[in-house]
Design a binder for these strands. Structure first.
Lengths: 190, 190
DNA sequence: CGAAAATTTGACATGACTCAACTGGAGTGG
DNA sequence: CCACTCCAGTTGAGTCATGTCAAATTTTCG
């Protein structure tokens, strides 16, 4: 099951067999049913989470329980609330399975040990974070420079298979507008 | 001059004297006058850039040369176009000095060598990238969940000294609205 | 001091939201 | 396997936050 993770790490920083064994010893697998939560507002994020299969969403809620989706994560992506993880304080975010999902987790208590035993992983996580940072910057740029309609058309052109996997109201939230607005964009398409 | 960088690294991953010397040997210092460019659209980003003093902004431009400010970086922050740096391809971004600025640079050609000689820096850059990623995620959340006026009031309350340092039209661009709109928000304040 | 840049102000335009009603499909239970 | 419910999606009317454009004013700086 953890093969997906080892495979992913090896793409960036090849590991020896011994190192792979250490990684395996420091990870655990969790199966999430659709709609099940990996993290809820008020809890502390105690794990780094790698998605071996399925899809997670991370969202915040306001006083009226309106949800704003901040991220999706699918196969071979990490989903981590770094802020809560590092400060050990309760998060204001929620992480929930959009589909049945398999997550490989590294717990706070073993992360530092793991990094000491396999220092290569510092490099791996550096590269992962830098890529995610780049993606996050691009997203900000896109939100700032494009209209809602442009964002939708770009996203559904770029990730048609992913758009199929999620309900429209989640896509609307992720793209930063209302489900009604998305519906109207789609209606125009004819 | 590079003291600021060593000091910053030491806060996260203490270095030996030898290691500090290696870092010094792999960095160069550049002084930028206000409005001078560190990177222009069409060039390749060939350096990691640490701000020892001053302020940089990173912005994109559209067909009509309208600027959208994506990031500011002040003392003790890094400003890097990871995408261009890693792919070796020309960037679509610009990085310009908002004030007279001192930048400490690590060139592409020496970065890998430096990381080999001082592997601790993998950890340092991992932590830096994870923090920046967290900040970027918070920014997306803020843009998605707050009105322009709320973003302005929050930002100027949180960073009053920084708001003093930059022209209003730059702040407006960074916060995602027009200078006219910012002016109107301020007028209401009375 | 004068020119250029930044900011302010006002009139008007519009992208996107809200709210409410309606439609249609997916489960669920009898 | 039908009837019922419930949730996602659609549609329309009205509204509001913010944008656009242009002119007036203030500030900056050579």
């Amino acid at each position: 099951m953890q093969d997906a993770l080892l495979h992913h790490i090896n793409k960036f920083t090849p590991l020896t067999e011994d190192e792979e064994d250490i990684v395996l010893a420091c990870t655990s697998v969790q199966q999430l049913k659709k709609k099940e939560f990996l993290l809820k507002k008020g809890q502390v994020c105690t794990t780094y989470n790698f998605i071996a299969g399925g899809c997670l969403r991370c969202f915040s809620t306001d006083d009226e329980d309106n949800e704003t989706i901040l991220q999706f994560a699918i196969e071979n992506w990490w989903m981590i609330d770094y802020s809560s993880f590092n400060t050990r304080k309760p998060t204001h975010l929620n992480i929930q399975a959009v589909e049945n999902t398999v997550v490989i987790k590294i717990h706070y208590d073993v992360l530092e040990t793991l990094l000491e035993k396999v220092p290569k992983l510092e490099r791996y996580f550096r590269i992962i974070a830098q890529r995610a940072l780049d993606a996050s910057h691009r997203r900000i740029e896109y939100v700032y420079t494009r209209s809602g309609e442009e964002r939708y058309r770009y996203f559904s052109k770029s990730f048609p298979q992913f758009v199929q996997r999620i309900p429209q109201y989640m896509l609307a939230s992720y793209l930063g507008f209302t489900p009604e607005f998305l519906s109207k964009i789609r209606a125009k398409k004819i």
